[in-house]
């Protein structure tokens, strides 16, 4: 990397060739040559799915995927960003749904068209087992869908590539919400604490902290016991 300013990579951004310093991410390389993002840039840290990118290497048939903010440019990369991925989002009232096997078929009936081709899995820049969770949804295995899909950043590349026109990330979202709301056990201690607060259990204690002098407050702070 000591020589990185001298080493350049030739990349083809939407077909136009540019020389960019190698070592830059796709996103920074596009900015380097003059693009100012409105679409196609978000958190810039791999969490938001705004910068879904598809590319091919020169003389290679294989279509590859990347997050522009997380992938380094490679010499000979032909790339384009996906500004928006159309994917049907069904409107539902979570309170009126229940976590049954039929819920997916009712809201997203196209899920039944899955042919297990695994294209979605190959299209996932997060390396998730997308096809496995789509199949798990057909079996009504909410836990499996929820956990396999948990790291999904909803970039939508799976939905763009699915030959059965399924939007896997939408199925996953529905599954996780139902799993979180109806299947995961609730934390009893949360409920208990809310009641204690509502009945004023801590009012006096906190009021006292708010009214004592600074030195006394500092003393309490320093002397408080730290849970290890």
């Amino acid at each position: 990397m000591e020589n990185s300013e001298k080493i350049m990579a030739r990349v083809y951004i939407m077909g136009r060739d540019h020389l960019v310093p190698s070592g830059l991410t796709i996103m920074k390389a596009m900015e380097y040559v003059g693009y100012k993002f409105i679409r196609g840039a978000g958190c810039r840290g791999g969490f938001c799915g705004a910068c879904a990118t598809i590319y091919r290497m020169k003389n290679d048939y294989k279509l590859r995927v990347a997050l522009a903010c997380q992938e380094t440019v490679k010499d000979g990369m032909f790339l384009a960003q996906i500004p928006f991925t159309p994917a049907n989002k069904v409107i539902y009232d979570l309170d009126q749904l229940s976590p049954t096997v039929s819920v997916f078929l009712e809201l997203y009936p196209e899920v039944a068209k899955c042919v297990s081709c695994n294209t979605c899995t190959k299209a996932c820049p997060q390396d998730l087992e997308v096809m496995d969770y789509v199949q798990a949804s057909l079996r009504g295995d909410f836990e499996k869908v929820a956990f396999l899909s948990f790291d999904c950043i909803s970039c939508g590349l799976c939905a763009m590539r699915c030959p059965a026109e399924i939007a896997p990330h939408r199925i996953a979202e529905l599954a996780r919400r139902l799993y979180g709301k109806y299947i995961m056990p609730r934390a009893q201690h949360v409920e208990k604490r809310i009641k204690e607060i509502e009945t004023g259990k801590y009012d006096e204690e906190v009021k006292k902290l708010m009214s004592i002098g600074l030195n006394e407050l500092k003393k309490l702070y320093v002397e408080r016991e730290i849970e290890k």
Partner: peptide, 12 residues
């Protein structure tokens, strides 16, 4: 809302 906080089997 369905947020999947990390928890143990009894919900804690």
């Amino acid at each position: 809302l369905g947020v999947m906080y990390d928890r143990v089997a009894d919900g804690t």
